[in-house]
Design a protein around this nucleic acid. Structure first.
Length: 915
RNA sequence: GGGCGGAUAGCUCAGCCGGGAGAGCGCUGCCCUUACAAGGCAGAGGUCACAGGUUCGAUCCCUGUUCCGCCUACCA
């Protein structure tokens, strides 16, 4: 049964697509509730439909796929639920840009046509990331693909909204919210990115109304908003100012007088001048201060962050300033000039401050006063805190727990309404006749509702008004924050609110794999919603992985030009190499710095495996015999024992989400034990094709290598399937084979100890070879000696292997019987290895190395002796440590004596050569 | 401002419930030895950031310092 010949170099492009198609055609990734095995489920963090695969996705999905493939092979009933997220703002932006290029706009199209246009776009190009996930090998159940705007998920959204509203956890009200003047929508607090920037602190003089020569100086970073000031605050206990409380100042550049008030919360006496202007319409703190003191609010900016005509009028601003419709930064410059000219500007100093920007478009965000929908979050947060505190949900690594708890305990109400068209429209309707004054038709067919409007919240459009029974309604134009629907993802994708078999089987899901960046956006909200609506946690484990950075540790971004495209990486090095790299670098709590050389290194690893497979297939031509492990050869027993250890380690690592450990354990085993030693040890047994050893070793080769393919498959699915299919095997695909578990009969501690002796001997011969500058192929005359009985037995027993790996003939005899004039002696762990010295050899070099070694050993001996002579140590250290120190010392002393002898003997050799 | 994490070989990192300092990549030397030059063999390279403390003993535990990340916060 000669297997098919493999090419000399592994070519992933020949392999990957073929097997992925095979797997999906066979339906291996499809989950059914009646499948045996304990359920294991993961919901994918749904990528944006606007997105294309970047390395963060690649890492995230590689780790999920490793878990899913591993659990599937363990016989669990696995489900990996895939899907995409409608990404309201981002998607709307993309389509609006297209419209702009076509010379039109969403306003021209109208809402209905625009939304249809977005669906068209989604149908065309919204799914490309899914194809890329397949390319990565993701074993998702594609038959269950979900989208946050699917009818089923939309129904879940409406259901949740209505129930939260019924429970009083959703309300509508006029608040100061974060507003993006480019996207023209509200944002939640966490959608604002704060960035440290260099700004200015302007000191502005406000003359007292009844005594214009006396001026109160306030400090501000935003002089343009002073036009909306409705008070100035000082600290009530500040002797510099408190006598002014109750008086008024004339607001510069306006004809308004505003009061001076005392407020100990807002005012920090140490900062600036100790006097603060209060602009309740444009600053969150000022808004609260305004609430405390019943101050009027004047909005001087419109929704595009331009100076607003009616706002300027209300604020009684000097019209000659010509500010109308000037954007913020221009208005600021004009204001500063005007203040300076008219003598109100005391001074300007540099000032560090943080600026809020829209996380989607990086535009500076404005606090904006408008009616919005909010989720009252505290009652939802409390159970979510408890679930993590009591361990029903584990965060891994657990260092993030405090982060999570801290954020949750301090959580603020969640603004969920967005003034865009793409998304789940809020299920709230306004009766026209009851809200006549509250409904404003801003443009034809475009309405806004004041905060006084009374909505009817319902699952479907109401037929009659509960108050006046009229039937003319206008639906709330706002849509919900995209994260509102993603918060339901773990159960909405499984059919909720229906109690589907899927929901019963796969919920709570087992593990969530995600990046830190969406811990609050997504994970926290899923926990809150899951607990609220299913009474159960949405997942047991949350594995939080790091960010992928470039080789210099910089965040990858298009503007920096340091992005690495995973698709071209897969093209160049193969998908398995990329996956292995990401897994190997996924150390907990540390960012992944990705350099291309690493990927190349693991590409080489794939090739190493490939060539091991070639070797095995070449030698499989002949009978095989499945003898019990203990009856097999030394090499066979050794590799099975080592493989067993690796199986144990890898399983333990995966259980602990230590993808890095699992990968390096497999890497080390395959390359440095299996290939470097085992395959070399085994070569001689094939010299006589039909020997018992050959038969059994063939069997061991197949067993061990087949097991290795199973062990590695979750990380490198493609090459392992390709190799597995060429090896003798049972079954249709590696995907559905059982994951390796340790086999007790494979353990052979004694054999491993024997191997250590062999390895030391052989390595020492090789070192000697290198020192004597012998060709690797040169067959040597070698000697071996040891005074330790068990070592001698092992050496005798393993002589054929040792001779093969040392490329020489080894005489085991007492050192005294070796020829003194032509043998280099090298000690190792109590043994002495002898190499015959022939030809032109630089013995000086050899000697100096011996001397250096000798010194190192001597140092170590002295250190150990000092320790063992120290009574404090011997009386207080554990017996085991003392014994171990003693053992080590004895071996060192032995080696040291041998080294000295070896050096003397070498010197006399050199002497006799000279003569 | 607060919190968290990091500082170990040229680079990227592992290790550490305290007892001989490791890997990968890179580097040096020899070798195209029929599985693999995307390879083999051998090797060089580290006062484990700094200063104290606890201990018989500290890379590891504690305290402080410096530097670097990240998260978070309304200091106008």
């Amino acid at each position: 049964m000669p297997g098919r010949q493999l090419e000399k170099i592994y070519d992933p492009t020949q392999v990957e697509e073929r097997w992925y198609r095979f797997w999906t055609e066979k339906g291996y990734f499809h989950a059914t509730v009646d499948r045996p095995g304990a359920p294991y489920s993961i919901v994918i963090p749904p990528p944006n439909i606007t997105g294309s695969l970047h390395l963060g996705h690649a890492l995230n999905n590689t780790l999920q796929d490793i878990l899913i493939r591993w659990r599937r092979m363990q016989g669990r009933n696995t489900l990996w639920m895939p899907g995409t997220d409608h990404a309201g703002i981002a998607t709307q932006n993309v389509v609006e840009r297209q419209l702009l290029a076509e010379g039109t706009s969403r306003e021209v199209l109208g809402r209905e046509a625009f939304v249809k246009r977005v669906w068209d776009w989604k149908a065309q190009s919204g799914g490309s990331i899914l194809q890329q996930l397949k390319r990565l090998g993701a074993s998702c159940d594609w038959d269950r693909l979900r989208f946050t705007m699917d009818e089923g998920l939309s129904q879940a959204v409406r259901e949740v909204f209505v129930r939260l509203h019924e429970d009083g956890l959703i309300y509508r009200g006029e608040r100061l919210i974060n507003w993006c003047p480019r996207c023209l929508t509200a944002l939640s607090d966490i959608e604002v990115e704060h960035e440290e920037t260099k700004g200015k602190l302007y000191h502005i003089e406000y003359p007292l109304a009844d005594d214009p020569k006396t001026r109160l100086v306030v400090a501000t970073t935003r002089p343009e908003t002073m036009l909306g000031d409705t008070a100035v605050a000082v600290h009530p206990e500040d002797p510099r100012y408190n006598h002014l409380i109750g008086k008024k100042v004339r607001l510069p550049l306006t004809s308004r007088d505003i009061p001076i008030i005392g407020d100990p919360i807002l005012v920090d006496r140490e900062f600036g001048t100790g006097a603060v202007k209060i602009t309740p319409g444009h600053d969150f703190n000022d808004f609260e201060a305004g609430e405390r003191h019943n101050l009027p609010r004047i909005a001087i900016l419109n929704q595009r962050a331009q100076m607003d005509a009616s706002g300027l009028h209300d604020a009684q601003v000097d019209p000659s300033l010509n500010l109308t419709l000037k954007p913020v930064h221009q208005a600021r410059a004009l204001m500063v000039d005007a203040l300076r000219e008219r003598g109100f500007l005391a001074k300007v100093e540099d000032h560090k401050m943080s600026l809020g920007k829209c996380y989607r478009c990086k535009t500076v965000v404005e606090p904006y006063l408008s009616p919005q929908w909010f989720v009252k979050i505290k009652p939802l947060a409390e159970p979510a805190i408890k679930a993590v505190e009591d361990g029903r949900i584990r965060l891994i690594p657990e260092g993030w727990v405090n982060n999570y708890l801290g954020w949750m305990r301090d959580i603020k109400d969640w603004c969920i309404s967005r003034q865009i068209w793409w998304g789940h429209q809020i299920p709230a309707w306004y009766c026209r006749s009851c809200n006549e004054d509250a409904i404003i038709e801003a443009a034809p067919n475009s309405f806004t509702m004041t905060s006084d409007a009374k909505p009817v919240v319902a699952r479907t459009a109401p037929a009659h008004c509960p108050d006046c029974s009229a039937s003319d309604f206008i639906r709330d134009p706002d849509v919900l924050d995209t994260w509102f629907s993603s918060a339901l993802w773990p159960f909405s994708t499984l059919g909720w609110p229906e109690q589907t078999p899927e929901l019963k089987t796969y919920y709570p899901t087992s593990t969530l794999v995600t990046g830190l960046d969406i811990l609050f956006f997504w994970v926290a909200r899923m926990i809150m919603m899951g607990l609220k609506f299913t009474g159960n946690v949405p997942f047991r484990d949350v594995y939080i992985h790091a960010l992928v950075r470039d080789a210099e540790g910089q965040k990858m971004s298009k503007s920096k030009g340091n992005v690495m495209d995973p698709l071209s990486v897969m093209e160049k090095y193969g998908t398995d190499a990329l996956r292995f790299t990401l897994a190997a670098m996924a150390s907990p709590g540390r960012d992944v710095k990705l350099a291309e050389e690493r990927i190349e290194g693991y590409r080489n690893f794939a090739n190493k495996i490939w060539n091991a497979a070639r070797f095995i297939l070449m030698n499989l031509d002949g009978p095989r015999e499945a003898a019990p492990p203990k009856d097999r050869s030394f090499a066979d027993r050794w590799i099975l024992s080592r493989l067993n250890r690796t199986i144990r380690d890898v399983n333990a690592s995966l259980e602990a989400y230590r993808f890095d450990q699992a990968s390096s354990q497999i890497y080390h085993f395959i390359w440095h034990e299996y290939c470097d030693w085992y395959l070399e040890l085994v070569k001689p047994s094939f010299q006589s094709k039909d020997s018992a050893d050959a038969k059994r070793t063939r069997q061991t080769l197949v067993e061990s290598f087949e097991t290795l393919q199973r062990l590695l498959h979750p990380v490198m699915p493609f090459i392992t399937e390709e190799i597995w299919q060429t090896l003798p095997h049972e079954g249709d695909s590696l995907v559905i084979q059982r994951y390796p578990v340790p086999i007790p009969e494979w353990n052979a501690k004694d054999i491993e100890a024997e191997f250590a002796v062999l390895e030391q001997f052989v390595t020492t011969v090789r070192t000697g070879r290198a020192q004597l500058n012998y060709q690797p192929g040169k067959v040597l005359a070698l000697y071996g000696a040891t005074s330790r009985g068990e070592q001698l037995t092992t050496l005798r027993h393993l002589l054929p292997f040792i001779e093969h790996l040392s490329r020489g003939s080894v005489k085991l005899a007492a050192v005294e019987t070796w020829p003194t004039d032509k043998v280099l002696r090298l000690p190792v762990e109590g043994m002495t290895v002898g190499l015959v010295v022939e030809g032109e050899v630089d013995l000086e070099k050899v000697l100096s190395r011996l001397q250096k070694q000798s010194e190192e050993k001597e140092q170590e001996i002295q250190r150990l002796e000092a320790k063992l002579h120290n009574v404090e140590f011997t009386s207080k250290a554990p017996a085991e440590v003392i014994r171990e120190h003693g053992d080590r010392l004895r071996i060192l002393q032995q080696d040291s004596r041998l080294l000295v002898g070896s050096g003397q003997q070498l010197r006399s050799m050199m002497q006799s050569r000279k003569e």
